[in-house]
Amino acid sequence: MKKRFSWQNLYLIFVFALLYVPIFYLIFYSFNRGGTMTHFTGFTWQHYTELFSDSRMIEIVVDTLLIALLSSLLATIIGTLGALQIYSVKRPVVKNAILSLNNILMVSPDVIIGASFLIFFTFLGFKLGFGSVLLSHIAFSIPIVVLMVLPKLNEMNLSLIDAATDLGATNFQVFSRVILPYIAPGVFAGYFMAFTYSLDDFAVTFFVTGNGFETLSVEIYARARQGISLEINALSALMFVFSLLLVVGYYFLNQYNSSKRTRKRQRLEATQIK
């Protein structure tokens, strides 16, 4: 809007540069013919072709996506049911107690979650691997789903449910025809957050993964400790594009939803004017 120069804009540009330079730096060197992240000697796709012929890496990517998809789906189902449960609790004391328990995993540091889950799985004699990683990811994704769905439930007008019941809907019909459509944006946001949590997680997975099963984060950590490998740069470029697509897709879906909401609100306000 303001085209004139201002210190504020300069500062914002500085912060954006700070945030993005490292990412573009990574991507830039993924095309480096020389094997280092310091001297750019020429353009090549070599690191990408290496990445695509690395069957171990591809297996890890598939595993990571599988964990993310499965864990976020299951976490969304359990979390939504949990939110409904919390919503239906009438006594404030009980409600706050459940909410506090729900939030423990939200605020706990990753290492604590990882370490305590490791003790838990070992205590049960559960074999570490795909199963333990999946269960852990479901476990730490549930609270975020609850936190996304609950506000939607709380802002829902109670007379909607009474009206549906009054019109002859059964409990299940009330749920599927009235509640679910209403909270759908929250459920969707919860699923998206759970998905990104899972993709992003390193510390918890690192603790509970055992030997023989790896996700991308764990693999990157292992390789990064050995030094620079431009295959990782190529991978990060691909992941950046993937995240970008996810976020842009999510943003536009949200915009669509919220513009629907705004229109609804405007209509509401119009009827309130005396």
Binding site: D200, I220, M239, L246
Partner: peptide, 27 residues
């Protein structure tokens, strides 16, 4: 949204980027 976008990039990749940027011969 652009501020939040980098949080969707795996933390380890960002750490890895700094290994290159801050290294002895880095930028």
């Amino acid at each position: 949204l652009l501020i939040i976008l980098p949080t969707w990039i795996n933390l380890l990749l960002k750490a890895y980027a700094f290994i290159g940027i801050l290294s002895q011969n880095g930028s």
